[in-house]
Write a protein that binds this DNA or RNA. Sequence first.
DNA 1: TCATCACCTGGAGA
DNA 2: ATCTCCAGGTGAT
Length: 282
Amino acid sequence: MQKISTINLDFTINSGQVFLWDKIGNEWIGVNGQDLLIASQKPFRFISSLTKTTNFFREDDDVEKILLNISKDELVRRTVKRFRGLRLIRQDPFQCYISFICSSNSSIRNIKLMLQNLCKKFGRQIEFKKRNFFTFPEVKTLANASMKELLSCGLGFRAKYVRDAAKAVDSGRIDFHLLRRDDYKSALENLKAVSGIGNKVADCILLFSLDKLEAFPIDRWTQRILLKYYSKIFHDITEKSLTENKYNYLHEKILEYFGPNAGYAQQFLFKMERDVNKKSWL
DNA sequence: TCATCACCTGGAGA
DNA sequence: ATCTCCAGGTGAT
């Protein structure tokens, strides 16, 4: 078990897993479902407004062992060393689900804006540490939201996806408790049955909120990484968008190579490549 | 089965 | 200033 002090908040929060976080002074403040979180690095503190969010940074993972396990090559070894303290986050599933549906064909800045608007319009205002915040909307609220209200949050073509996705949860067709217990494959298929969720978005939801460490989201960046550093191992990768079959085939090969904790490898490589290209975060 | 294309919107870059 | 282009994809044709 890795010491809690080895969590690097900047690396972790600025790695594309979460959007509703702000750094104010030396404190990170973030929304996680109905909970509000405050974290600081030195000294390390982590406060939850509901005091019920535990293992948010997956403190129950044997990180040292996992990192050793995914270090199949020099690139991963170097990257893990460089970004030591980067963790996967165990997010509120509903928020994660809506967040990544909103992420499609958008930028981190814009995704954050959309989600902030959703919170302001549909969330609950709470006071914490003498300041006001908005929580993430409840399932029912979003399921019953009008298209006009959703569009006013800047969701664009994602508005109908968000509404329908919320309805799917509200009706029980999507049940996060079941998905968490399901194996990766069947959880994946269940999520992909929701309009607006494809392979990449489903993998993000599975990895960041449903404990599926074998999920390895392949987006533009990840694809670029595979092409740039791993073309000898995962051949016939191009810059063209992945077909369903190619995505599945690639994922299989990736699991064979990185093993059952492949999701951790993805997170480190993603962080590394975007930093190399000086892309901005939150 | 695969390749193309449209899609809302805000922000960066020309 | 005004415009173009693109951003952590997905679904329809």
